[in-house]
């Protein structure tokens, strides 16, 4: 398993999630968190990979598939 769950993964996921916000601006906070432990970077990269993976997969939806509610119309 390459993406090992660690005690940092919850915090890392929160950072990856917040960074995905177009108005995210706490870069110094992220820097400080990454500096706290060498394990934080790996956890953050795994969380960021998962975030990008999901976004890329969903971007492959066709318009028709995009909204299941619309299909009924």
């Amino acid at each position: 398993m390459t993406t090992h769950p660690s005690i940092f993964s919850e915090a890392a996921r929160l950072w990856a999630m917040r960074v995905a916000d177009p108005s995210f601006d706490d870069w110094d906070g992220l820097t400080r968190w990454l500096e706290t432990s060498p394990a934080h970077l790996a956890a953050y990269e795994a969380a960021s990979d998962a975030d990008q993976w999901a976004a890329e997969i969903l971007a492959g939806e066709t318009r028709e598939e995009k909204d299941p509610r619309r299909r009924r119309n």
Binding site: M1, T3, E10, R13, L14, A16, M17, A50, D51, W53
Partner: peptide
């Protein structure tokens, strides 16, 4: 969002293993 992120991260691990 946290719920979605947690679920998708778990799904990714599941699919990749």
């Amino acid at each position: 969002l946290q719920k979605a992120y947690r679920t998708l991260a778990e799904l990714r691990i599941k699919l990749h293993t």
